[in-house]
């Protein structure tokens, strides 16, 4: 990778990336893209969600999978952090718990690529911490 140090360098590199970027922009129909939300509250961060999110962004791009990786707050599954929610186009979101980079790799290859469910799913009807005792 060329050394990027200033905004001028960034401007230069942008030109080289342009074709790839406009391709991504054209396919910018959110319904057609994979959406990955990484839970990034205190509980997630303390358990390594930053590494998981970086891995997701880098690997999905490297493997040419058209996806949006973004962050969300705590989903209430603090005990299972890092958690990520994956929404494939046309499917209900699926939440995975205890995600590390190894698990993330498995999720990309099996679930995102082949719609094959992977171990570690948190059922949506599962109780979050003290949900029934809302103040």
């Amino acid at each position: 990778m060329t050394k990027i140090k200033s905004l001028a360098d960034l401007k230069k590199i942008k030109g080289d990336l342009q074709s790839k970027i406009s391709l991504r922009e054209k396919s910018d129909t959110p319904e057609g893209r994979v959406l990955v939300k990484v839970a990034m509250a205190t509980c997630g961060i303390a358990s390594g969600s930053k590494e998981v999110m970086e891995y997701m962004i880098d690997e999905l791009e490297k493997r040419s999978i058209d996806a949006i990786v973004t962050q969300t707050g705590c989903m209430g599954y603090c005990y299972a952090e890092p958690t990520i929610e994956v929404s494939l186009p046309g499917s209900e979101p699926v939440v995975y718990g205890y995600v590390d980079t190894k698990k993330a790799d498995e999720i990309i290859e099996k679930y995102i690529r082949n719609q094959e469910l992977v171990d570690g799913i948190i059922p949506v009807n599962y109780q979050t911490i003290e949900k029934d005792k809302e103040e």
């Binding site: 990027i4 905004l7 001028a8 960034l10 401007k11 590199i13 942008k14 990336l17 342009q18 790839k20 970027i21 991504r24 922009e25 962004i57 880098d58 999905l60 791009e61 990786v69």
Partner: peptide
């Protein structure tokens, strides 16, 4: 500097 190229693009973000 990006002149309209999205700052959130994963390729751009890596360089940032």
């Amino acid at each position: 500097a990006l002149e309209g190229t999205p700052i959130s693009d994963p390729g751009i973000l890596r360089y940032i």
